[in-house]
């Protein structure tokens, strides 16, 4: 067996082993706290992957994606509490609303320079938060104002109503959602509109000159991204069973999604996942262990990581990590060092 095919075998074995590990993780981990951290990691990976569709591939910087998380969470929850619609159905309604809203916001802003888009999405996100905080009730629907909404508890593990006592079902649901989102991203990066998007993100004028309607594809990406983000919002509502505007519609949430994507590597498929894997534990553990001693330290660390990554690895950590992985494969297969 020559070293090239050996390298390939090792690569496949490692990837299969990783997939098996990810899918069997709930069998090994019994501690609900760790499960919760893992679920959040996957949720952030999912949300950031959705963000990446417009933030990465379309080359703009959306800073108000918490609005769509909120639209998803509020829609499915209000539909369930008021009319008894299962969140499994409600999540699609929420996603549809989010996509429509995203399109409406995207049409004027995506034609402008990136700075306008970043600021407009941020202001829009804040506007949605203020609206939610000022709305206590609309007709029969309870929105809850600044207190937010508490979901009524359902006994036991109820698949039909998307509520479980055990953490394991949540883990698998978000894992499957993440896999689908990653597949969509991968697929888009290989079809014509994906190329148009990338071209429009890098050189809008050149792409326009070649007859690509850049802003049309950007609006599509925005709509799809908002759609997927809202689905994650419903998941978040069902997982925590309580949410309020400052948390689910907050600026910090929107920024954290952008940070994860940028540190991981925006515009790449693995970037958001890597970013979430690296940053979520940092933020969880520093918050658990240091926030009582030094409040805000975890955000200082976040800021510092962000600046260092932007200065030394402006394309995100996915590049050095994939180089490292390649070298590891070389070493394992005994292959001579190649020029890469």
């Amino acid at each position: 067996m020559n070293s090239g095919s050996r390298r390939k075998t090792i690569d496949t074995v490692l990837k299969v082993a990783l997939a098996v590990l990810v899918f069997t993780l709930p069998l090994w981990i019994k501690n609900p706290t760790y499960m919760q951290i893992l679920i959040f990691m996957l949720l952030y990976a999912y949300l950031t992957t959705s963000w990446n569709l417009v933030g990465g591939f379309a080359g703009v910087l959306p800073l108000g994606h918490s609005a769509y998380v909120g639209i998803g969470a509020y829609t499915s929850t209000i539909l369930w509490i008021t009319w008894g619609v299962s969140p499994w159905l409600g999540m699609w309604v929420g996603a549809f609303i989010a996509a429509v809203v995203g399109t409406i916001i995207g049409i004027p802003t995506l034609k402008l320079r990136g700075a306008y888009f970043a600021l407009s999405t941020m202001a829009f996100g804040e506007g949605v938060r203020v609206l939610a905080e000022n709305t206590v009730k609309v007709g029969p629907c309870v929105v809850g104002g600044p207190q937010g909404i508490c979901l009524p508890l359902v006994p036991g593990n109820n698949l039909a109503l998307f509520q479980f006592v055990s953490k394991t079902p949540y883990y698998y649901i978000i894992l499957i959602m993440l896999c689908i989102a990653l597949f969509i991203t991968w697929h888009i990066s290989r079809i014509r509109p994906g190329y148009y998007l990338a071209a429009g993100g890098e050189e809008p004028e050149a792409a326009e000159a070649l007859g690509v309607n850049v802003s049309k594809y950007k609006v599509w990406a925005m709509a799809l991204s908002c759609f997927m983000t809202a689905l994650g919002g419903t998941f978040l509502a069902q997982l925590t069973l309580y949410f309020y505007p400052k948390q689910i519609l907050g600026l910090d949430f929107s920024f954290e999604l952008a940070f994860i994507a940028l540190i991981g590597g925006r515009g790449t498929i693995a970037g958001p996942v890597i970013g979430a894997l690296l940053l979520r534990p940092v933020s969880e553990f520093t918050r658990i262990y240091l926030s009582s001693v030094l409040p805000g330290l975890h955000l200082v660390i976040f800021g510092a990581i962000l600046i260092l990554v932007m200065i030394y690895q402006p394309f995100g950590l996915v590049r050095p990590l994939s180089r490292f992985y390649d070298r590891m494969l070389d070493a394992l297969s005994g292959e001579k060092k190649k020029e890469r």
Binding site: F259, V300, L306
Partner: peptide, 23 residues
């Protein structure tokens, strides 16, 4: 033409300054 990464660096500065003040 529009370096997004620079916006992110300034955001990092924002997080550091605000939270240093908090500490």
């Amino acid at each position: 033409r529009e370096p997004t990464e620079v916006i992110i660096v300034t955001t990092g500065v924002w997080y550091i300054l605000d939270n240093l003040a908090l500490m």
